[in-house]
């Protein structure tokens, strides 16, 4: 297998309290330097809670946000240009909210034609053929093409969003919470469709979600994000079943599971660290049951454990 997508030290810093002249008042590090690689044909799940930087990471990967540091490589070639059109042919994005990612004043045909025309410069007959092919692949009826987005249910709109991403003919898809706005019965339809498409077109997925069960059901490997950095990466069946990082353990114990008694897995007063005033050492240290003195002073590096899982922890479980 070859590496489809490789990130090296990718990070993002947002200025806070901009001034007309001079430096901003403060800086927030939304994503700490992240190094990850995704194999061709693999699904890498990225989980984390709100504010952990998953969406910022995804937007950097498709060129919607310029990274502060680091590089992105696709199929071994670096992508330095901040032009989304260049990204668009190699890597595409499926949005969380299917309805708001479709312009309410355009027909589905106009929406579908945009990537074909602007990324690939196809003529009208070529476009029509390609759209018909993609619509067949995502189980949408051709008569939908002349309707407007508000006429569709969430599940149908998300299929259209996926169809648009496929139209760009990119091999890598970033799926940013693609099913969290959908009802559970529809959610399963879309997840199964994504699995089919991956088989059919040989796609590589980066699947971002806050729902551990969904990530586990679709991913080959999982990366856990906390406070902007990767704290654990490993095979999907291992990460949640045998977590090595205390935060992953907390996450998997917090997920409601049928048959597990209700317990609060941690004290009720805990809060996330303040991004404007980040802790010096491990960001999870204040919530961690086995934090030692070194955790407060140093950031633990991501290291490989004996079972092959990578964990950023001085005291892995």
């Amino acid at each position: 297998m070859s590496t489809a997508l490789k990130l090296t030290d990718l990070s993002k810093v947002f200025p806070v309290g901009k001034r007309l002249f001079g430096p901003p008042k403060a800086q927030v590090r939304a994503v700490q330097p992240v190094t990850l690689s995704v194999e061709a044909g693999e699904t890498l799940g990225i989980v984390g809670e709100s504010g952990c930087g998953k969406s910022t990471l995804a937007r950097m990967l498709v060129g919607l946000l310029p990274p502060s540091t680091g590089t992105i490589e696709i199929d071994g070639q670096p992508l330095d240009n901040a032009d989304p059109a260049l990204f668009g042919r190699k890597i595409q994005y499926v949005f969380q909210d299917p309805i708001s990612s479709l312009n309410p004043r355009k027909t589905i045909r106009q929406i579908m034609e945009a990537p074909l025309r602007h990324l690939h410069g196809m003529g009208p007959s070529e476009r029509a053929a390609r759209i018909a092919e993609i619509f067949a692949a995502v189980n949408l009826r051709p008569e939908f093409l002349d309707r407007y987005p508000h006429e569709f249910s969430g599940g149908q709109a998300q299929r259209i969003g996926i169809a648009r991403a496929l139209a760009a003919d990119a091999r890598i898809l970033i799926l940013d919470e693609p099913v969290s706005a959908l009802d559970v019965s529809v959610q399963a339809q879309v997840l199964n469709l994504l699995a089919d498409l991956k088989q059919k077109f040989g796609l590589t997925y980066l699947f971002i979600s806050h729902d551990l069960a969904v990530v586990e059901a679709v991913s080959d490997r999982v990366a856990v994000l906390y406070f902007g950095s990767v704290v654990e990466v490993g095979p999907a069946d291992q990460v949640f079943a045998k977590p090595r990082h205390p935060y992953t353990k907390l996450l998997s114990e917090s997920a409601p599971v049928v048959g597990r008694p209700l317990t609060a897995p941690e004290g009720r007063e805990t809060e996330l660290p303040d991004p404007l005033n980040p802790p010096k050492g491990c960001a999870f240290c204040a919530r961690c049951p086995n934090a030692g003195p070194e955790c407060r002073d140093q950031v633990p590096p991501l290291t490989q454990q004996d079972d092959g899982v990578w964990t950023a922890c001085f005291h892995p479980l």
Partner: peptide, 9 residues
């Protein structure tokens, strides 16, 4: 949808 348009080139 503006982001989506950008990604459409």
């Amino acid at each position: 949808f503006v982001d989506a348009a950008r990604l459409s080139g």
